[in-house]
Nucleic acid binder design. Structure first.
Length: 350
DNA sequence: AATAAGGACTCAGAAACGTAGCG
DNA sequence: ACGCTACGTTTCTGAGTCCTTAT
């Protein structure tokens, strides 16, 4: 009962020393927000370090660039053989990247192909800045495919460096920071105040999706995906037909009104128009659903929503556009993010 | 001072579960 | 009404991060 008392009564921040519900989470996002203030100098710093005379610093600077730009994981070394052969940034091997001086009209392209956490494949082609490209060429020189790309670098060394740049900063903070800032930017860019709730929710999902893609959160295509897509398409087709019929209905009613000019016929016109409008809205909603579903085929939104996105951004967005929070967070999630729902106003900025 | 071992905590996707809506 | 199914939610369990401590 003691636990229960703690949970219900004490964990609201009123009692010093008793952590409030979600405090750990809150702290995590506060660290990420502090990174926002210094990220520019950090970027300037690693740019400079690309030109460093020390190989170790060069490697650290390029790795950090990947972690920042591509939201790669740190990549600790782990015992060989015992575990699956997966890598992160610092444990990348020569065989995991290919360099293209130009590709598809872009310059200095790095092609990544490796297995990351949980053996999820990371495949990406990225145009990088010229010094990075040249550094990579240098790091790969005279090496076998199975050699470490960053042979001078460890996660410990990298994190020590980051700790010096900002209190509490580690490699994974970049993931949190970039995920949250991307959500905020995308929401700003995609939300149209004129849209109805369904349209705004689609925008939210798209912003969420941009983050999931950045963090490489994948899922296998659900077994029932093709089937349920078909069903949805059938619904759309049926609805289209209904809309057409309703259009004819309107026309018919209008013709009748022209002939008779009586009030009853006029009321009928209004009725038919209303019906048409309702059906058109339903059709639009279905189309939105279909788009959303297709775009989401292989992307898992849950992980970023739960672990990377500062919930206050979402809460603020909901408040600003009058979206009920239940449309985004289910009951469990609302409990998890209760602190944020409580804390954030519509003008919260990450 | 560098490295290894261990462990707390966080993150990852999918299987299992429950239920609302459908015919 | 009644079973079915598709879907959202919860649970499960393993993987990865990063810190502390021992050597």
């Amino acid at each position: 009962w003691c636990k229960g008392w703690n949970k219900d009564r004490a964990r609201d921040g009123k009692y010093p020393g008793v952590p409030f519900q979600g405090e750990k989470d809150w702290q995590k996002y506060e660290v990420a927000r502090r990174l926002k203030d210094v990220v520019h100098t950090i970027r300037a710093q690693y740019r400079k370090d690309w030109k460093s005379k020390e190989l170790k610093k060069q490697q650290r600077a390029v790795a950090l660039y990947f972690i920042d730009k591509l939201a790669l994981r740190a990549g600790n070394e782990k015992e060989e053989g015992e575990t699956a052969d997966t890598v992160g940034c610092c444990s990348l091997r020569v065989e995991h990247i290919q360099l293209h001086r130009r590709l598809d009209g872009q310059e200095h392209v790095v092609e990544f192909d490796f297995l990351g956490k949980d053996s999820i494949r990371y495949y990406n082609k990225v145009s990088v800045e010229k010094p990075v490209f040249e550094n990579l060429q240098l790091f790969m020189k005279n090496k076998d495919p199975t050699d470490d790309l960053f042979d001078q670098l460890t996660t410990t060394f990298l994190n020590k460096h980051l700790q010096r740049l900002m209190d509490g900063l580690t490699a994974k903070v970049f993931r949190t920071y970039n995920a949250s800032i991307t959500l905020q930017e995308q929401l700003k860019a995609l939300t149209n105040p004129e849209d109805n709730v369904a349209g705004k929710l689609l925008s939210y999902n798209r912003a969420n999706r941009a983050v999931a893609i950045l963090c490489n959160h994948q899922r296998s295509v659900p077994k029932t995906f093709a089937r349920s897509m078909e069903v949805l398409q059938e619904k759309i087709d049926a609805k289209k037909k209904q809309v057409e019929e309703a259009q004819e209905g309107v026309k018919k009613a209008e013709d009748e009104f022209k002939e008779t000019k009586d009030a009853k016929a006029e009321a009928n016109v209004e009725k038919k128009k209303k019906l048409l409008k309702r059906l058109e809205e339903q059709l639009a909603k279905l189309n939105v659903q279909a788009t959303d579903k297709e775009e989401n085929k292989q992307i898992a939104l849950g992980t970023s929503k739960l672990n990377y996105l500062d919930p206050r951004i979402t809460v603020a967005w909901c408040k600003k556009f009058g979206i009920p929070i239940e449309k985004i967070y289910n009951k469990t999630q609302r409990e998890k993010f209760a602190w944020a729902i409580d804390m954030a106003g519509e003008d919260f900025e990450f």
